Simulated scan of single mutants.
Amino acid sequence: MKSDSNEARSAMALVPVGHVRSPLKDFLPAPPAHGHATEEYLTNIRRYNERVRNLESELVIFPELEDILLGIEEFSHVLVLYWAHQVPEERRGVLQVHPMGRKDMPKRGVFATCSPARPNPILLSPVRLVSRSRNVVVVRGLEAVDGSPVLDVKPYVRGYHAIDEAVVPQWMERLRQEMQERNP
């Protein structure tokens, strides 16, 4: 089916179901201006990742929507889709980036990265579900900053979401290994 680009790019209504309550007030530390990964920058990234990994946040679902959470506490992990509301409007027009702002990484289209700077700053995080009390779900490991609008919450199902044969490019694997080596 062929569609007109203008028609396909028409506005759509996206309504949050709640918001994030978190001690995290800022995104990942900004990369160095020269774009090379200094040891200080990597140390800051390690500290940030460690903080986020252990951070408990709350998904505060609007009270009138509390019923959408029925049974969610039976899962150990959930996928949280949220709006990166602190991404400035001008960053939403960025089409290509160096991953994590690092010039030693190849420039890639934002859809090939995890950058929050994207046309629609919709982010996805798999997190541990700690507890639920009425319309509040406590999770661990959510990178969303305080006040981020929650768009959706889905249960993580290991047999459905895990893909054993998934392939990632060498530069992404290098980033993962660097973070793992510094965060054993």
Rank of each mutant, 00 (worst) to 15 (best):
M1D: 14
K2P: 03
K2S: 12
D4T: 03
S5W: 10
E7I: 11
R9M: 12
R9V: 05
A11D: 12
A13L: 08
V17I: 09
G18L: 02
G18A: 04
G18Y: 01
H19G: 02
R21P: 01
S22V: 04
S22C: 09
P23V: 13
K25A: 14
L28Q: 15
L28P: 00
L28I: 09
P29E: 05
P29C: 06
A30H: 07
A30Q: 15
A33L: 14
A33M: 09
E39Y: 02
Y41S: 06
T43A: 12
I45R: 13
R46G: 03
N49T: 11
E50N: 10
R51H: 13
V52M: 06
R53F: 09
L55Q: 10
L55W: 08
L55M: 12
L55A: 00
E58P: 00
I61Y: 11
F62Q: 13
F62K: 14
P63C: 02
E64T: 15
E64H: 15
L65H: 04
L65I: 04
E74C: 06
F75R: 09
F75N: 06
H77N: 15
H77M: 02
V78I: 11
L79G: 01
V80K: 03
W83R: 00
W83Y: 15
A84F: 03
H85G: 10
H85D: 11
H85N: 08
H85L: 01
Q86K: 10
V87K: 09
P88E: 01
E89D: 14
E90A: 13
E90V: 12
R91S: 15
R91C: 14
G93L: 09
L95C: 05
V97K: 02
D104E: 15
P106E: 02
P106Y: 04
K107A: 15
K107P: 10
G109W: 11
G109M: 04
T113G: 08
T113M: 03
C114A: 10
C114L: 15
P116Y: 03
A117R: 12
R118I: 04
P119E: 01
N120P: 01
L123F: 08
L123K: 15
L124N: 07
S125G: 02
S125K: 07
V127I: 09
V127Q: 05
R128Y: 14
V130Y: 04
R132K: 04
S133M: 12
R134L: 04
N135T: 07
N135I: 11
N135K: 13
V139I: 00
G141W: 08
E143N: 12
E143I: 01
E143S: 07
E143R: 11
G147Q: 03
S148P: 06
P149S: 04
P149G: 05
D152E: 07
G159S: 15
G159F: 03
Y160G: 03
H161D: 08
H161M: 05
I163F: 06
D164E: 13
D164V: 14
E165R: 15
E165L: 09
A166S: 07
A166M: 12
V167D: 07
V167F: 14
V168R: 08
P169M: 06
P169W: 09
W171N: 04
M172W: 14
M172P: 01
E173G: 07
R176P: 00
R176S: 13
Q177P: 00
Q177R: 13
E178S: 11
E181H: 14
E181D: 07
E181P: 00
P184D: 15
P184L: 14
